[in-house]
Amino acid sequence: MKRRELFRPLVLVAGFAFLYVPILSMMIFSFNNSRLVTVWDAANSPTLKWYAALFRNEQILDAAWLSIRIGAMTATGAVILGTLAGLVLARFGRFRGRTLLSGMTTAPLVMPEVITGLSLLLLFVTMEQLLGWPAGRGVLTITIAHVTFTMAYVTVIVQARLAGFDDSLEEAAMDLGARPAKVFFRITLPLILPAIVSGWLLAFTLSWDDVVISQFVAGPGSSTLPMVIFSKVRLGVSPDVNALATILVVLVAAAVTVGALLMRRQEHRREREIQLAVAENK
């Protein structure tokens, strides 16, 4: 018994050390003065010079802004399509083409990126030849590609959330006179809103992070941030990337922590209210 109690924390500490030490080391070296990224120059560190360099780097700033725009468009599109697909799979019962739809929403979750990238590029080339649209490749093609592979994640999240709710809620609304569209907007949508928000954030993150698919479907002048970083680090380590990573980690960690705290507070209030209701009726 004693030994197991020791084993559990040990596993957790080791596992999380593995996950976080590389990130922390990257953050520490972002304050290093030396140009040799991995050698600590104790005399002149910490320094913020790489942060300054980062904010002077037009190429990175432009790419970041492009990635944010693509991410936002992607997430919005993925949320709309993914919510529809999740709704259809969770609530519409059997219909023709259901198996295919369910297959097409789970396969992208594991599909190797090179295959998705190549196939989408060939599609765009063929479409351009046959239809003249999309003319050339750039932001539009990247967004379409990103929507396609991220909507699968939104579908899974929405479907799981809907599976946790009784369909009788929607039936009750319909029984009370609401048409299907109204039922969706007044009942289903508010209930799955948390799933939609997490779906949006996840789709944004996946789009923001993608380098392989973007490389296939991007055109000249549409280099996203990961593409710029990738070509930079391919040539060797560069300290301003450390600075960028640090900023990113801090931002994400802050956002996630705030979100988690807010959710926890709401959860606590809800639990207290339930306890109160039970106590009142004793």
Binding site: S168, E171, L176, R179
Partner: peptide, 29 residues
């Protein structure tokens, strides 16, 4: 369809809308 029938149903699970108050639930119909 259900929304055009002159009947209303009380569900076994009650199916009260969790995001609405009692008054809002009752007003929905």
């Amino acid at each position: 369809p259900p929304y055009e029938r002159p009947a209303n149903m009380m569900f076994q699970s009650y199916a009260l809308f969790p995001h609405m108050t009692v008054a809002k639930n009752v007003a929905f119909g």
